[in-house]
């Protein structure tokens, strides 16, 4: 086997490798987030105003998330029952009804609403629309879609780290090939 002297690779060739791999890695890393954008946009464009969303959120949060509903709500408050019917059809796509008495409530005679996950599902749906509408560079950390935003610095750092690692790890192979496989 003949060994040939190996010339050092020019520094800018290393830079090209790092930059090329970093760009490819960045695109690879942000692709899932980028593809999620149209779905988040569709959620944001639900035909409900911000005022309606806030009013509905307040409504589904009352009576300890409808787990302790006073008995007079079922008897006398027709407008509230109608609103409950509307909200349940709007976000839950099913009717709700009075459940068994809830002994743990401090209000006294109170009933639970069935199905029990009504309030949770409605609240999450409303918060998802609010989060989707505030999704972007200036949104809060508590936003439900926080990790999906492609502008996070960590994607860039991960891509750069991959580029540098690739350059370091591929160099011995490059030298080996130039040493032993050169014609």
């Amino acid at each position: 086997m003949i060994r040939w002297p190996v010339g050092e690779l020019a520094p800018h060739r290393h830079v090209v490798t790092v930059v090329a791999v970093a760009i490819g890695s960045y695109l690879w890393l942000i692709t899932p987030g980028l593809l999620a954008y149209p779905r988040i946009n569709a959620i944001a464009q639900v035909r409900l105003s911000d005022r309606e969303l806030k009013a509905d959120l307040a409504f589904v949060s009352q009576y300890s998330d409808w787990r302790c509903v006073p008995s007079d709500v079922w008897r006398t408050n027709a407008s509230e029952l109608k609103q409950l019917h509307d909200v349940s059809l709007r976000y839950y796509a099913a009717n709700v009804k009075r459940g068994p008495p809830n002994e743990s409530c401090i209000e006294g005679a109170a009933f639970i609403l069935e199905p029990e996950d009504f309030s949770r599902v409605c609240k999450e749906a409303i918060n998802d629309v609010i989060d989707a509408r505030s999704f972007g560079p200036k949104y809060a950390r508590g936003n439900g879609f926080y990790g999906i935003w492609i502008g996070h610095l960590w994607w860039l750092l991960a891509a750069l780290a991959t580029g540098i690692l690739t350059a370091i790890l591929s160099y011995p192979r490059y030298v080996w090939r130039r040493t032993f496989l050169q014609r």
Partner: peptide, 17 residues
């Protein structure tokens, strides 16, 4: 999408991501 689909759509988006 309809408001009734938001809950499922949001959780699908996040889990797919």
């Amino acid at each position: 999408i309809d408001p009734t689909e938001v809950y499922a759509e949001a959780s699908n988006t996040y889990s797919s991501w």
